[in-house]
């Protein structure tokens, strides 16, 4: 899975904000804010990656996180993106 084309992530006034551009702007006119973990996962999802790949990336990045907890966070995050129709799968 990966993030669809047409989204940009930028820091604005100490928040990580995602907006749609190009053709995507016509179908998505909302704003997404990401916390630190969300931004980490978003950046991984810019390129095609599967759930296990994301879990492994979280385990490598954050010390002391259990695999169960990492998977829970990954599933929760990707489910949100799926609901907002932001993922290509």
């Amino acid at each position: 899975m990966k993030i669809k084309d047409g989204f940009i992530l930028r820091q604005m006034n100490s928040m990580n904000i995602v907006v749609a551009v190009g053709d995507r702007a016509a179908e998505f006119n909302g704003l997404i804010t990401l916390n630190e973990t969300g931004m980490f996962l978003w950046n991984k999802l810019v390129n095609d990656i599967d759930e296990q790949g994301l879990v492994d990336a979280v385990l490598r990045e954050y010390n002391g996180v259990s695999e169960d907890k990492a998977r829970e966070d990954v599933v929760k995050f990707t489910e949100k993106l799926r609901q907002a129709d932001i993922l290509d799968e």
Binding site: M12, N13, V21, G22, D23, A25, A26, N29, L31, T33
Partner: peptide, 18 residues
Amino acid sequence: VGEANFMILNQTVRPENA
């Protein structure tokens, strides 16, 4: 910060050009 960011971005023009 969140209230301010959201309000400003909703009350300006959002260009399609990246």
